[in-house]
Simulated assay, not measured.
Amino acid sequence: MTYILISPCKNEGDYIEKTLISIRNQTVPPAQWIIVDDGSTDNSVDIIEKYLPSMPYIKVVNRPKGERRVGGGVIEAFNTGLAAVDVADYEYLCKLDVDLDLPPRYFEILLDRMAADPRLGTASGKAYYMHPTTNERKSELCGDEASVGMTKFYRRACFEEIGGFVAEVGWDGYDCHRARWFGWRAISWNDPDLQFIHLRPMGSSQKSIYRGRIRHGKGQFHLGAHPLFFMLSSLYRSVRQRPYVTGTLFSIYGYMKAWLQGEERFGDQDMTAFIRAYQLRALRSGKAEAAEWALQQRRDVLGV
């Protein structure tokens, strides 16, 4: 059960050492770890080079210098790393951010669960962050029906069938809908051995966390989110995730701006209808039941 890690890296000097140590401490190490230096101007590469003697499976791939751009830019860097290996040699692959602190059995557990369920296409643990004022550990509120964007662990067959990731903001929600569309299960678990620390708050890596919330709203429009579902889920997050009310307002602004400007959605009408049917059912019966219902609908159609 071999797996590879592919990590975009852009000025991650404040975080990457903890990620390197947490990968070195994995009970099942990767067969290869491709780190794509996306034009870093800090000491990121120097830190990586310090660990090469003890982590010979690391390979650094360089891209030209450019402005940090989450969403599309991150996936473009990931695709550069993907092109540097023959993925057919591996059963599993993972898009891994380098601002994470993973528990030591993280990949061992994911591999075991993938082996136990041949239709499990993508999986992850749950992301937490440290509150900046109270230093309390807080959940990033990731649903059980999707793998999280900062550590997307994929069965290669599923990844290839969905066509990889779209290079736009919102890619990390759309891919799980695509997986269900092709009859694969997407899931994340909150087991203690799968809980990891996101060293940088989600959505804060470009400009500010408020720009991140605007991108989130824009991404939700692109993947085809139903307006009612988006509004209600945004209100839910307004009391659960900082920056509370203002962050929610920026997210709504991003969604409405994309709508009013007539931006295109990722999928065709059938795909958008599939996503919205799942979301409306989730409002009635919860995301977990809705995800299983949507998955079964597609499996009946596909005969898998």
Rank of each mutant, 00 (worst) to 15 (best):
G39P: 11
G39T: 04
G39L: 09
S40L: 10
S40A: 04
T41F: 11
D42C: 01
D42H: 02
S44R: 01
V45Y: 07
V45S: 09
I48F: 02
I48K: 01
E49Q: 08
Y51T: 06
L52C: 08
L52N: 00
L52A: 06
P53Q: 09
P53H: 14
S54H: 04
I58C: 06
K59S: 07
V60K: 03
V60A: 04
V61C: 09
N62C: 05
N62M: 10
N62K: 15
R63F: 07
P64S: 10
P64H: 01
E67Y: 06
E67L: 06
E67S: 10
V70Y: 07
G72D: 10
G72A: 02
G73L: 06
V74W: 11
E76N: 14
A77Q: 08
A77M: 14
N79Y: 07
T80Y: 09
T80L: 12
L82K: 11
A83P: 00
A83M: 09
A83G: 13
A84F: 10
A84V: 06
D86K: 11
D89P: 00
E91Y: 10
E91F: 08
Y92V: 00
Y92R: 04
L96V: 13
D97V: 07
V98R: 00
V98D: 05
D99H: 05
L100P: 09
L100A: 03
P103L: 00
P104I: 03
R105D: 07
Y106R: 04
L110V: 09
L110R: 10
L110F: 02
L111C: 10
D112Q: 15
M114C: 07
A115P: 12
A115Q: 12
A115Y: 11
A116S: 06
D117R: 00
P118T: 01
P118W: 00
R119T: 12
L120F: 13
L120H: 03
G121W: 01
T122I: 05
A123F: 11
S124C: 01
G125A: 10
K126T: 03
K126L: 00
K126F: 04
H131W: 05
H131S: 05
T133N: 14
E136N: 15
R137M: 07
R137Q: 14
R137T: 15
L141N: 11
L141K: 14
C142K: 03
C142I: 10
C142H: 12
A146M: 04
A146G: 00
A146S: 11
S147A: 15
V148I: 15
V148D: 02
G149L: 13
G149E: 00
M150N: 15
K152R: 13
Y154W: 15
Y154H: 15
Y154N: 12
R156Y: 05
R156C: 00
A157N: 06
C158M: 15
C158Q: 03
F159K: 06
E160W: 03
E161I: 04
E161H: 08
